[in-house]
Design a protein around this nucleic acid. Structure first.
Length: 383
DNA sequence: CACCCGTGGCA
DNA sequence: TTGCCAAGGGT
């Protein structure tokens, strides 16, 4: 097989042509022979070089950024990353911090299992690895919250390891450039993409080249090869790209199979005592695990009963309902306001930790985003 | 292996 | 308004 650029361009075109007649297994997809060389050159010239977690080989800083960036966009992460680093400058500081402090700094970022795993990971690094991150992809992937792709990102950025990432950006780039069919979330398709991505890794390169390659995969997908309107005119692979050549940018990668998301409804109790509100700690797993939230009930009657159990006075008044949309369901929230009756000696019959929080100390508690909005609204209307 | 797990931005 | 999904991992 020829390895020249012109021949790979024609092979890509022929792949798409024959793909209309017969399905081609991903293992037979030809790789651009100089994919990595061209990607590295493009990254150096047109990629991103000034993100807060770049220009360092400190595995702690790289690891922290990679965990925060899981399923989360750069612009969202930036302020959280700065606050986190200021409070926890190294692994040791994070490892010995109270879990509540970690959750507070994470509140609003979502996917709270990441925060608990981050904390556990720091402790494992300190207790089992002498405070230094292991350098191999395998050892990194054994740590809590670090999977195959994140391990490769850390190993390549911090240690120059030849290991490929496979995130949403890479899946989109590979699906388009090489015409990979099928939904990338499906296991079979994803496995093929891992093989393809590994076959594309640069050979005989420096640590800096490896970093530029990994960063290039992310930058290409995040800045040019975006889902909506890819900027093919600026893409170094435009002449070879199966999607571009065949005009199928909109169809690749294949979309997630549609499924209607269910709607759930919950009643939340804002039990007030002066300018303080009672919060309840959520269980460590499930939605909003480990965060402080409002006590919930399954319906109006249960909410009224709950308020009574907590020692509220008779009046329970409705506030404006709000809707919060998750990835896999929609949550309609019915807030109910009640005042604590201080003469009541009602006992908390619930099996959860509670706390009274002043509305002006919201920042000190890890509170879910919609609950935070609710409490901020309450602060505005009552004080 | 399919499903669970947040949030904000954008078309 | 609604749908879609972004530097994925755990179970």
């Amino acid at each position: 097989m020829s390895a020249s650029v012109s021949s790979t361009a024609s092979s890509a075109a022929s792949l798409s042509a024959s793909a209309t007649a017969t399905s081609i297994a991903s293992s037979t997809i030809p790789a651009l022979s100089d994919f990595s060389v061209r990607l590295i050159a493009w990254q150096r010239e047109h990629g991103r070089h000034d993100l807060p977690w770049q220009n360092t080989r400190d595995p702690y800083r790289i690891w922290l950024s990679e965990i925060m960036l899981q399923q989360t966009q750069v612009s969202t992460v930036v302020p959280y990353y700065a606050r986190f680093l200021a409070r926890f400058p190294d692994v040791a500081a994070l490892a010995c911090a109270p879990a509540d402090d970690v959750m507070t700094l994470w509140a609003g970022l979502g996917y709270y299992t990441r925060a608990r795993n981050l904390h556990r990971c720091a402790q494992v690094v300190v207790e089992q690895h002498g405070g230094r991150f292991p350098e191999s992809v395998e050892a990194l992937a054994d740590l809590p919250g670090i999977g195959r792709s994140t391990a490769a990102a850390i190993a390549s950025f911090a240690f120059g390891a030849r290991a490929t990432i496979l995130d949403g950006n890479v899946k989109r780039v590979l699906a388009r450039v090489f015409g990979v069919e099928g939904f990338p979330g499906e296991k079979k398709v994803e496995n093929g993409m891992w093989l393809l991505a590994e076959s594309l890794l640069p050979v005989n390169v420096t640590d800096d080249d490896v970093s530029a390659y990994t960063q290039g995969l992310m930058d290409l997908g995040a800045t040019l090869c975006v889902r909506g309107k890819p900027d093919c005119a600026r893409c170094p692979f435009a002449v070879d790209c199966v999607a571009k050549v065949t005009g199928r940018q909109r169809e690749l990668p294949a979309a997630r199979p549609k499924k209607t998301v269910p709607t759930r409804r919950t009643w939340m109790l804002l039990l007030r005592d002066g300018d303080t509100v009672m919060l309840e700690k959520r269980p460590p797993s499930g939605i909003w695990g480990g965060l402080w939230s409002l006590p919930e009930a399954a319906d109006e009657a249960a909410l009224v009963q709950l308020a009574r159990d907590f020692g509220a006075s008779a009046d329970v008044s409705p506030l404006a309902p709000l809707t919060h949309v998750f990835t896999h369901f929609r949550l309609d929230i019915e807030p109910r306001l009640a005042e604590l009756d201080r003469s009541s000696n009602a006992a908390n019959a619930r099996d959860a930790e509670t706390v009274w929080m002043s509305l002006n100390e919201l920042d000190a508690f890890g509170v879910p985003a919609p609950v935070r909005k609710l409490l901020e609204g309450l602060q505005g209307s009552l004080i």
